[in-house]
Amino acid sequence: MPPDQGSPTPRRGSDPAPRPGDDSAPRRGEANARRVEALAAAARRRRRLQTLLPWIIIAATFLLWEVLVRGLQIDAFILPAPSAIAASMIQWWEPLLSNAWQTLMTTLVGFGLAIVFGLALGVAIGSSTLLYHGLYPLLIGFNSVPKVAVVPILVIWFGIGTVPAIITAFLISFFPIVVNVATGIATVEPELRDVLRALGARPVDIIRKVGLPRAMPYFFASLKIAITVAFVGSILAETVGSNSGIGQLMLSASSRFDVPLVFAGLMVTAVMGVVMYAVAVAIEERTTGWATRGQAEQNVTSLPGG
């Protein structure tokens, strides 16, 4: 019996080596069944640890923070302890919630616009070398402009309020999407394109059936970056020119030297960022399993060859 059959290799990233063929593995007796069972159990343990680990680390961080602040008797004005932040959260939960909602909506609208326009421009740039070379310098220059400098201009144009925040969130999250989608489409293997070309497919068909699906892993990778920077954009704009939102709340809290409330705002922002990131990851896993070759489920299920 070859010792390498069904050996546990699925952890090796994007290893292109063929997996053990499921169609040719006959039953190999009980010893093998036990080994498969053991492997599956090990994989289950690993996964349990994987889901628990982030929580453990977060809890440990807060604990350490609390201990340090208390032990070194750091002033709440410099660094409030987690317990103080929590107390502030409870005390101010209503404004925190309403402002967080405002920020979330602003961010999501800007992010949504970034997805729509980013996809469109990314597809255009990725499928035309001419557009690519024509537009890239402008895009890069545009992205190099610090967005803090843009917000005052937006406030002059649109007045204090939600619109500058939406636009800033859009501007800051638009670029990674464009670049990634364009890269995904521009790097389509010529062989795959030829499959469709050989059938007499129109360029639109080629983009729809090869370019876009192929760009999806890139697109989702960019979404994970884009959603987090979208928060940066909207909160930035809120601190500069708005009368609502988490950014504005933190600004007014710090002007009242209410540092625990500032930190409470930061916490809320971080939570929103993490949640939106997790949403992006969940969508990514469901739609582009082919790109990771189903590693997630491969770990446990495909060993017995069912």
Partner: peptide
């Protein structure tokens, strides 16, 4: 489009 082609490499679309 009257042509059906099988390439030397399988070139199936991975997705």
């Amino acid at each position: 489009s009257v042509v059906g082609m099988a390439f030397q490499n399988p070139t199936l679309l991975p997705w």
